[in-house]
Computed example of a mutant assay.
Amino acid sequence: MNDPQQIITQQKKSVYFSHVDNPVCTGTGYKAPNLHTWGPGIRDVYALHYIVNGKGYYEINDVTYTLHKGESFIIFPHMEVYYYPDQEEPWEYVWVEFKGAAALHLLSMTRLAPHAPTLPVSPEDLEPLYNVSGSNGNKPFERERSNAKLHVLLTYYMEYFPGERAVHKTDYVISAQEYIESYYWNPDLSVHHVVDFVNINRSYLFRLFKDTTGMSISGYLTAFRVQRACDLLKTTLLSVKTVAYSVGYEDPLYFSKVFKKVTSYNPTEYKSRHTAVINGKEHNSRIP
């Protein structure tokens, strides 16, 4: 018997990267327009700064960068830096410190790098997004909320200052898969909707999807629908008609035909070959 779950899992192994946790916010703050300087020194965290007003200087790798309102700079861990305000027009800035593998992952999708630690004026005022900390940050929900807000802030840098890694060709495939897995239940879902969502050339997406997963988009949609149908038949007491409708098939007879083609069983046979006790009744779940 063909196993749609195995088909889907096998195709995903070569496409999905493992998800990382949120970056961890370790501090945030605001510097008033005074003559405070920092360094030379190193930090053991990332420290992202956004210039609210004024002018200042950032020295790293024997290069001095001049920064103005709306521009950003970052301190990378374990790199010697020195930054200081302009004497005539001292800068005012906000900053956020963070650490973790997720931080490096997100930063890698921006133009920020040790050899390129500054960014030009943002198309949007980013100052409000730097308010990522809670009242004191000691409570678990406050820490998680701060980390989530930091993640949102970094996504704006990904959007406005994307790096070469920001859009990899497999990301298009992942987007198509995620769209299918979110809307497979809609009987009107078509390949056309998937192409519109991913927003790239139709032929290119077809070729990319096939090369990456070994399946066509329509084939993936069918396999995923049947996989979900198998799950429902094994773990619930829903009728075949209800299962069919739940996975995007309005015609139970057509659903049965598709299901048998993929699994070698019609839905009723598949259901009867699985036994488990659900709400005190025997039900499916023996066969994978």
Results as ranks from 00 to 15, higher is better:
Arg228Phe: 02
Pro252Met: 09
Thr235Ile: 01
Glu250Pro: 00
Val226Arg: 07
Thr242Ser: 11
Lys241Cys: 04
Cys230Ile: 10
Pro252Arg: 03
Glu250Thr: 11
Val240Asp: 10
Asp231Phe: 13
Gly248His: 06
Gln227Val: 00
Cys230Ser: 11
Lys241Gly: 04
Ala229Pro: 14
Thr235Glu: 09
Tyr245Phe: 02
Thr235Gly: 05
Val240Cys: 06
Asp231His: 11
Tyr249Ile: 00
Gln227Tyr: 14
Leu232Gly: 04
Ser246Val: 01
Ala229Asn: 01
Thr242Asn: 11
Thr242Trp: 03
Asp251Ala: 01
Leu233Asp: 04
Asp251His: 10
Arg225Asp: 10
Arg225Lys: 15
Leu237Pro: 10
Thr236Pro: 10
Pro252Ser: 01
Val247Leu: 02
Phe224Val: 02
Val243Phe: 08
Arg225Val: 01
Asp231Gly: 11
Val247Ala: 06
Glu250Tyr: 03
Leu232Glu: 08
Ala244Met: 04
Cys230Ala: 08
Leu253Ser: 13
Gln227Ser: 14
Ser246His: 08
Tyr254Val: 04
Val240Ala: 07
Thr236Asp: 00
Cys230His: 04
Asp231Ile: 09
Leu238Pro: 15
Ser239Asn: 06
Arg228Asp: 01
Leu237Ser: 14
Asp251Thr: 00
Asp231Lys: 09
Tyr249Gln: 07
Leu232Asp: 03
Thr242Glu: 04
Leu233Tyr: 05
Gly248Cys: 08
Gly248Glu: 05
Val240Ile: 15
Ser239Arg: 12
Asp251Glu: 02
Leu232Cys: 09
Pro252Cys: 03
Leu233Pro: 13
Tyr249Asn: 03
Val247Ser: 07
Gly248Met: 04
Asp231Arg: 10
Tyr254Met: 08
Val240Glu: 09
Ala229Ser: 14
Tyr254Gly: 00
Ala229Asp: 06
Asp231Tyr: 13
Asp251Ile: 02
Thr242Met: 07
Phe224Gly: 06
Tyr254Ala: 00
Pro252Gly: 05
Cys230Gly: 08
Glu250Ser: 14
Cys230Gln: 11
Phe224Gln: 03
Arg228Gly: 01
Lys234Thr: 12
Ala229Thr: 09
Ser246Cys: 07
Gln227Ile: 01
Ala244Phe: 08
Lys234Pro: 03
Leu253Thr: 13
Tyr245Gln: 12
Val240Ser: 05
Ser246Gln: 10
Asp251Trp: 00
Arg228Lys: 15
Arg225Phe: 12
Leu232Val: 06
Leu233Phe: 11
Thr242Pro: 02
Tyr245Gly: 12
Lys241Arg: 14
Val226Gln: 04
Leu238Tyr: 15
Glu250His: 06
Pro252Gln: 00
Ser246Tyr: 09
Val243Gln: 05
Gln227Asp: 11
Pro252Ile: 04
Ser239Tyr: 07
Val243Pro: 13
Lys241Trp: 01
Ala244Leu: 03
